[in-house]
């Protein structure tokens, strides 16, 4: 295997996994922008999305598109419940209790999944059964390509939705200035609920996309969530472009670090880099104020 092929292989898988981090990071960023809440449960929402797909696809035997859409609907409802019972009671408190509550929610989701599904990893079939193809010594897994395509599509959708629809504009207005939005007659609480639903769906889609690669277990989301959080910070909190670039950067760094330095420190590379980043250029790639407003 040539050195170039090795590089190509690792870059490809890094970018693809980075796409998943980006989807999760986007969810975290959206919630952060509209509610100032950092959702530590995003990783576990991903896990629930994967389980939802597993049930619909593998246990009920529904065809892929239907299972996928149904899972999105289910997770959307779940997103509403999440904001109603975790965010809403705490909406007027400082960021700390809310962070902790989302961490608690994450623990809860993991353990509920453990009780319901047990600890055996579950297998979900990929979208295309044929697997993949090899070009120039680099294996292109179709599922990875699906991940990249869906991620790109969602980012485009996101742009069109927020810039060109009335609902999207209202959501954006709410994110920017809640008080002002309220004065303009935008139903702020509803918009926040929408944001949570949308973010939950983003996380869940991430979970459904990685399910065939990762296998579905109750702990699959914890490192995913942390890395998405790291991606968010890398890109500058609350910035949509930042989430995309941060996610892919994290994916690439860990893939290349694992390949060329040591696989056992794979998880350390992105966090180490982030640490340096935070201490040297805390505002992220796309600059956001880091210190909390005094």
């Amino acid at each position: 295997m040539s050195g170039l092929a090795i590089l190509g292989q690792n870059v490809f898988s890094g970018i693809a996994i980075g796409g998943v981090y980006a989807l999760l990071a986007l969810g975290i960023a959206l919630i952060y922008r509209s509610t100032n809440v950092t959702n530590f449960a995003q990783g576990d929402i991903t896990m629930l999305g994967a389980y939802a797909l597993y049930i619909l696809l593998e246990q009920l035997g529904l065809p892929y598109p239907i299972a996928f859409l149904l899972a999105i609907v289910v997770m959307g409802i779940f997103g509403w419940l999440f904001q109603r019972f975790v965010y809403y009671p705490l909406r007027n408190r400082s960021f700390l209790p809310v962070i902790i509550a989302t961490i608690g929610a994450g623990i809860l989701f993991q353990n509920v999944a453990l009780v319901v599904f047990g600890s055996i990893p579950r297998k979900v079939n990929p979208v295309f059964a044929s697997g993949g193809f090899t070009v120039g010594g680099v294996y292109f897994d179709l599922q990875y390509i699906v991940i990249l395509v869906v991620t790109a599509a969602l980012f485009v959708f996101q742009y069109l939705f927020f810039e060109h629809t009335s609902l999207g504009k209202k959501m954006q207005a709410t994110a920017q200035d809640k008080t002002m939005a309220q004065l303009l007659g935008i139903p702020v609480a509803l918009m926040i609920a929408f944001t949570f639903i949308y973010s939950t769906i983003l996380g869940a889609i991430g979970g459904m996309l990685v399910a065939p690669i990762y296998f579905v277990t109750n702990r699959m989301g914890s490192t995913l969530g942390l890395k998405a959080f790291a991606a968010c910070i890398c890109g500058g909190f609350g910035d949509v472009r930042g989430a995309l670039i941060g996610g892919i950067a994290i994916g690439l760094i860990e893939a290349l670090g694992a390949a060329y330095i040591a696989p056992v420190y794979k998880d350390a590379f992105p966090f180490l880099l982030l640490l340096v980043f935070l201490l040297v250029r805390p505002q992220g790639i796309f600059g956001e104020k880091v210190s909390e407003k005094a």
């Binding site: 690792n10 996994i17 694992a258 390949a259 696989p263 794979k266």
Partner: peptide, 20 residues
């Protein structure tokens, strides 16, 4: 001597190392 951490999801690096 190729080690990895349990719960690894992506073995690309491991596989390329073995190949090499």
């Amino acid at each position: 001597d190729q080690s990895f951490n349990n719960d690894e999801k992506d073995y690309t690096a491991v596989i390329t190392n073995i190949k090499e």
